[in-house]
């Protein structure tokens, strides 16, 4: 996976609503139609990094099947960051496409 895209995907996933690490991992896999396979372990340092930057916040809650789990939600700063990173992503994709498929 491209450097930095994991952060973007996490932010996007959390934009829908708070989620714990396990469901974030599955959500990414599911929504990419199983194309993007995340090593679930590597998600946690990324979550930690995002929380450290103040883009997401965490709290302990109870999962669907009654397990204690650490939930993450997007902060206002995270929402702004998501918008900025999405724009940036679009620009990159457009730029790369222009090179790959010249009109």
């Amino acid at each position: 996976m491209l450097q930095g895209t994991l952060d973007l995907l996490i932010l996007k996933t959390l934009a829908i609503g708070p989620a714990h690490g396990h469901s974030v991992a599955y959500a990414i896999e599911r929504q990419s139609d199983e194309v993007l396979q995340v090593e679930h372990g590597s998600l946690y340092p990324a979550l930690h990094r995002l929380e450290d930057r103040g883009w997401i916040a965490s709290f302990w809650g109870t999962s669907e099947n009654n397990r204690r789990a650490r939930y993450y939600r997007l902060t206002p700063a995270g929402r702004k960051q998501l918008a900025a990173q999405t724009n940036r992503w679009d620009e990159i994709v457009r730029a790369v496409n222009r090179i790959l498929r010249p009109a």
């Binding site: 714990h20 690490g21 396990h22 679930h40 372990g41 946690y44 930690h48 999962s63 099947n65 397990r67 204690r68 789990a69 650490r70």
Partner: peptide, 17 residues
């Protein structure tokens, strides 16, 4: 310690599933 608990919680949920 907090991380350890979080990872433990992941394992529990995944095992359940």
């Amino acid at each position: 310690q907090e991380r350890a608990r979080e990872l433990e919680s992941y394992l529990a949920i995944e095992t359940d599933e």
